[in-house]
Design a protein around this nucleic acid. Sequence first.
DNA 1: CAGTGGTCTAGACCACCAT
DNA 2: TGGTGGTCTAGACCACTGG
Lengths: 253, 253
Amino acid sequence: MVIQEEASIDKSSVIPIYYQLYKLMEEQIRRGDLKPGEALPTENELATHFEISRMTVRRAISELVSADMVYAQQGRGTFVATPKLDNIIFELSDFNEEIRRRGLNYKTTLLEARIVRADESLLKKFEISDEHKRFLYFRTVLSAGDDRLSYEVKYTIYSKSKPILETELKDPSLPGLIAAHTEYVPVSSKKVLQVASCTEEEALILGIALNAPVFLIEQTIYDPDLRPVGWSKSIYRGDRYKLTSYDGWYKKE
Amino acid sequence: MVIQEEASIDKSSVIPIYYQLYKLMEEQIRRGDLKPGEALPTENELATHFEISRMTVRRAISELVSADMVYAQQGRGTFVATPKLDNIIFELSDFNEEIRRRGLNYKTTLLEARIVRADESLLKKFEISDEHKRFLYFRTVLSAGDDRLSYEVKYTIYSKSKPILETELKDPSLPGLIAAHTEYVPVSSKKVLQVASCTEEEALILGIALNAPVFLIEQTIYDPDLRPVGWSKSIYRGDRYKLTSYDGWYKKE
DNA sequence: CAGTGGTCTAGACCACCAT
DNA sequence: TGGTGGTCTAGACCACTGG
């Protein structure tokens, strides 16, 4: 059953045809003209109806597939998907970046920066056994106004004997430090988020109560061969941070 | 500079050509043959070199773009991207699903299920003013073995007067309840994750210490017109849950 | 078997960028 | 102006599904 009636595609528009068709179908699905499980018109039907090429139709449909609004089955057809609402995808482009957008006068304070020798726990984190390796060690606090928001401890292998620049001291980003002070190229990272009760040290530094709930994020950065080349632990005040997640056919634009 | 030497594309293979080329270029980038900022060969060069159509080349490149390993600039060329390692994208396909994979004998226990009248806080959450609205109310505990892992409170509008089925009592999923007991179609959701100290009630139910750190996730489910049609609050034990996130050019397969 | 989506080709024109 | 990526066409063959 072809579902277009007054549906309009303007072939002479500057807006790409595939995009017009994508938006058209997206609206029909969103409005419920096409319900989950129902089949879309076939690619050839759409191509014929709108007098466009099948490749263009496919491009439009592939956008719907990317948006998880539709799924295709070879030999059967293309169908409206059922929104999955039980996923959890918390996204935050740089936890710290977020603060800069919110708080006006944020500030990074360096508590400590030095070169340290390997100890057992460090060797374990970096999965190496060379006891002579040295590491760059940083402790920083991020604050906005009079409030201290997060506390970070960072380590990276110190293999080039380059001096530590002043700009690095001001706002040392782990990937940046690695690129500057090692011969490794940081290409991937793993983060683990947990909740914790803050320790005495953290309570003092952040100005919160002992055992107050905090976010704890441990990050490991890897080179192309998956060797760990950087490690950090961050404590974020639980009363100042939250993660928000949108799921399903949520409209972004 | 064309970078292929012994590069091989098997046109008669069952593996799609675009996929072979995608993997080929991905490997070159991953190995560092092509470094961040460097230009890929042009689409025409690649098409000529491998004796394939330009559309096939474009398909391969579009895969690299999706993987964030490459970016295209009209009129200039296509370039290797610098891995972004400061994103936080925590993904967990269904928090509960996760448990089922880990713990073997998980179990959902229903503490309470009834129909309640609207009170002020509920009307606010659902952004409505009709005091006569009624709601389905659920309280459940998820456990694995003898350990209780999470505690959930769920509300949904009760508009169809359908009986509550036994299967729903066993493992009431919020989207499922909405589909069954309202005329609304749940299509999108918003979740907010925070850390908290558990209350006395939560401590008793989960068998943990008072004020122990917990994850708190509030979820609101919306219909296509962005009207709230379901709301839930979940408490997850902090000592049993963590969120892991991979970023950059992390290899999935 | 006919019909579906998946892949692929060999062209074409365009907007954009550098020179 | 020439070269780049972005869009589009009108075919083609294939693998898969269903009756």
